[in-house]
Write a protein that binds this DNA or RNA. Structure first.
Lengths: 234, 234
DNA sequence: ATTTTGAAGTGTGATTATTACACTATGAAA
DNA sequence: TTTCATAGTGTAATAATCACACTTCAAAAT
């Protein structure tokens, strides 16, 4: 086999920042690392890129390994390549962030990794430079969600407007006027009102909505304004 | 030395998409590839990541190698890792895009690589998946410039408003009303009007402006609207 | 000297988007 | 039938955006 001689080869890993929303706060899923170094420390779910797989395939594999989920929102975030980030051997890490419906996850939990959900404000110390990865992912999700309807990926297929508002408020750590929020999001035409209500949150019940997938895909790249004064909040 | 045994190591490269603006059109800088495979074909400037350098260091090194420039705008774009993208040996490429002042470049040109500027509409066939890299870079620059004042990086320190407008019009392949454009950009407070004029473009001459760096850094993350209806143009 | 020329520069009114803000409706439980 | 907690609704004021056409300047030509 011909090779590019004299060049250094190195390890390539993929690490996933997995976001979920429990109705209250935005959380990320961490595992207890299963091997040395830093064994049993809290860590992002990750793994080495295998010889025949692409980076997207690797990240999907890793996500499925932990959550059992496929076909979820997964986007490449950034590649971290500081030469000393892994003390054992140089390893470059391509990070992805995933947005999953926390309910779908809970039923298919793979417990090999002792995974746990942590609210973003209470993320434990992480190994290597994973703290930076999480920070960057937080920034990115806020940035992107201010303009594009990605947060729906965190909700079940049927959701209520109060749920959606909670989600936005928790992502941006702010409060939004109910009337303005409803007007704003309904004006996008992304949501269809359903007949039935969610009665879990109140006696009166709140109407369910679901995404209009046509509109969703058509408008995904448009600059939608989901939150007031987004620039102030990032 | 302890290592992660049994994992495959692979080559890591950095490729740079270098943008410049000549006053007329937005261009990228390409080189004739100096080694096999695909020797002498048009290619992005790139190189392998060296054992002791970070990815940012590698991209800066590569950019300097070609242009002689340091301290220019350089941002990580995306990492391409399709296992078959390089036919010789698996090589993952971390791409960066650079925005440079084309005038600064011309004086320090390194000709070892037979570099040439190509208008974005007339980019020749590129090797491997570099076509995808360029497409993505184009999208990213449009996306980002719609919200953040990055295009100033393509202009000399002193520039005129007609120049700036030309730049925006050429990036978005559109025309913008002069009055609205001036109002819009001056309202950001990013620019300071200078005493002297550029007389090269007209008899009357256009006033030079320069960036107010305070404002520039302070407002960089804010969502500024530089072009009308950005969502329609991306 | 006067005129021509070509780009630079300027202001306003109409439309649209955004914001602030407070009460009523519902239905279960007490 | 009253209480309670959350769901749901409208409007007016303000701000942002858009469309649109003429004047100013200074060099070059006459």
């Amino acid at each position: 086999m011909i090779r590019y001689s004299k060049q250094t080869r190195l390890l390539l890993a993929v690490d996933c920042i997995i976001f979920g929303f429990d109705g209250e706060t935005l959380k990320i899923l961490l595992i207890k690392r299963g091997f040395q170094p830093e064994k049993d420390k809290w860590s992002l779910m990750g793994g080495f890129v295998q010889p025949t797989e692409s980076l997207d395939q690797a990240s999907n594999r890793i996500l499925k390994q932990l959550t059992g989920l496929e076909g979820v929102y997964l986007e490449q975030l950034h590649t971290f390549g500081n030469p000393l980030r892994d003390p054992i051997e140089r390893t470059v890490s391509v990070t992805y962030f995933a947005l999953i419906d926390i309910n779908k996850y809970e039923t298919q939990l793979s417990s090999d990794y002792h995974p746990e959900w942590f609210p973003l404000k209470r993320v434990p110390k992480l190994i290597f430079d994973q703290q930076d990865m999480v920070e960057l992912a937080k920034k990115r999700i806020r940035y992107k969600a201010a303009l594009h309807p990605i947060l729906f990926e965190l909700l079940p297929p049927k959701f209520t407007l109060p749920q959606l508002q909670n989600l936005y408020e928790s992502v941006y750590n702010t409060t939004i006027d109910k009337r303005n929020f409803r007007q704003r999001v309904l004006a996008t035409g992304l949501m269809m009102k359903l007949e039935d209500k969610d009665k879990s949150g109140s006696k009166r019940g709140a109407f369910y909505y679901q995404l209009n997938m046509q509109q969703y895909y058509a408008n995904f790249q448009a600059f939608l304004n989901f939150i007031p004064n987004p620039g102030n909040l990032l």
